[in-house]
Design a protein around this nucleic acid. Structure first.
Lengths: 245, 245
DNA sequence: CAACATTTGTTCGTATGTATC
DNA sequence: AGATACATACGAACAAATGTT
């Protein structure tokens, strides 16, 4: 409508065709050359149009293969409690986790502030990847105070689950204190780990988790692929009111 | 580091120079032609690099003028209560609001579900723009049940404030029930209203607000320009724990 | 206000690299 | 191994918005 340039027109045309079901999730779009012929433009103009669809999370391209329509987003709930697996099980997905690094080192400034550490305190770093139905949907980095959880690394390697590992360390329950959300672009490393085809923004969340006494026990960063996830926040009102649903 | 392509190298080089303070907020970057000469590449390659910086909210371009370094983001708090002005005042900004349309019509499916409306119920639509220091930072659309708030439109036009208008309609207080966050690309219309230069994703939030009895009184959608805002969620634990700060 | 130079935005053309099938 | 298809890069030209003279 308000479109003016060729690539904007092409972009919104294809967008409508995808939304209308003309192209279904998982389907391969016509090749760039075909689309260029169809719209009577240069291949670059088609690529410019496809780029914005890619950024919007509607499609993904694979060099040498083609351009594919993506599936709709997984809904990821962020409540008081942080339960990754349960979260995804609820939406009918099969969740899994891969850990990339588990290490212990001195904290940087932001980590010290977030966990209210004293000088000399060390932290455990737990980095990994979250998948749903074997598709990577997020990268995470969790920072724990080493003084409080001396043998957490071994537990994490064995358990694959933060909740269970913390429980084994005496934390019966923990809650989310605060979360900050922003949108960033992936680094080349992140792009590879999430198998992104560039130019898809990540929903970045910084969260601080506390035990029931209010002690800060985890400083977590998560990068969600915005083409595969949307975040849902639920207040503690939710449970009480949802019963009257 | 892990960079491989020319435009990725240029992008991270410029990014570092901006972060290091070599280019300060508000400053004009060298022209694309100059940068192309500096890096010894084609102008297209420079533009590809600048595009990712633009998407990351680091720079903004103006045709005919140049490319400028943007200021850092405003932090926008999302708590149980929804208080736009207070929110921005807290971060030292001068907030303002412009309303674009105020109307009454029949709800669509999503609005009926969100507000739990019965067939035949009408809704008031309140659309507008939020600014901080005269820079647009978000667009919003609020949907209210007309049956409960018959004269809300007049109040909104007079007040400019949702909180005050609802209070005048007998809602002493209201809270956020749930919020869904995703990232989308702006439509041409939104791009114009937010004065975006294309290709900056929007943080889109869908929220349902309820009065103290749990009745749903507002279904709101907000599109934040991700280059100007980051969202912070605070649990109700925050207040209790922050005192021990 | 008009004319002009500057600067970014769009489009086409062409060539080469690289991953997939 | 070869054909297909996307990714990167260079070159050229013009359009559109801006700022200046």
């Amino acid at each position: 409508m308000t479109d003016q340039t060729l690539w904007q027109t092409i972009s919104s045309t294809l967008s409508k065709e995808i939304k209308s079901g003309h192209f279904l999730p998982g389907m391969k779009l016509p090749t760039e050359a075909d689309l260029a012929r169809r719209f009577g433009v240069n291949r670059h103009t088609v690529r410019r149009a496809l780029l914005t669809l890619k950024q919007g999370g509607m499609i993904a391209s694979q060099r040498g293969a083609g351009v594919y329509v993506l599936h709709s987003k997984t809904d990821y709930k962020i409540g008081e409690r942080v339960r990754f697996h349960q979260n995804l099980l609820d939406s009918g997905r099969s969740p899994s986790r891969e850990w990339l690094t588990i290490s212990t080192r001195n904290p940087d400034m932001s980590e010290m502030r977030a966990l209210k550490l004293s000088k000399g305190d060390e932290v455990h770093i737990y980095e990994g990847k979250s998948l749903a139905d074997n598709v990577p949907i997020a990268l995470f980095k969790s920072v724990f105070p080493a003084k409080r959880f001396p043998d957490l690394p071994e537990k994490l390697m064995a358990n694959q689950s933060v909740t269970i590992s913390l429980k084994a360390s005496g934390v019966a329950d923990y809650k989310r204190l605060s979360t900050q959300i922003s949108a960033v672009l992936p680094s080349p490393t992140q792009r590879g780990q999430l198998k992104l085809n560039q130019d898809i923004p990540l929903l970045k969340t910084l969260s601080i988790n506390v035990d029931l006494l209010g002690n800060r026990i985890e400083f977590g960063t998560t990068w969600f692929a915005s083409d595969r996830v949307s975040l849902t926040l639920e207040s503690h009102l939710e449970n009480a009111l949802m019963s009257s649903n």
